[in-house]
Amino acid sequence: MATSQIGKVDTVVDAKGQVCPMPIVMLAKAFKDLAVGQILMLLATDAGAKKDVAAWAEKTGNLLLETSEEGGVLAFYLQKV
């Protein structure tokens, strides 16, 4: 598991092994149930996810707090705005 400066994570979405567009779909779905201010951690291995998640956060106006990578697994920390 990737280490992070983010203390509390409210929801974890595991999209490891999922191919584009599934990581973004799972992220968008999970965000619907999130309350404003809550933090979601998304795990993904799809190479496209790095740019996709950043683009998604920018377009939807949510915050991408942190991205880390460990052993081929990308971890994204996102906060609902």
Partner: peptide
């Protein structure tokens, strides 16, 4: 289907 899904995810 991927184009449609991507667009839907992007709002």
């Amino acid at each position: 289907s991927i184009m449609a899904t991507g667009a839907a995810a992007m709002g």
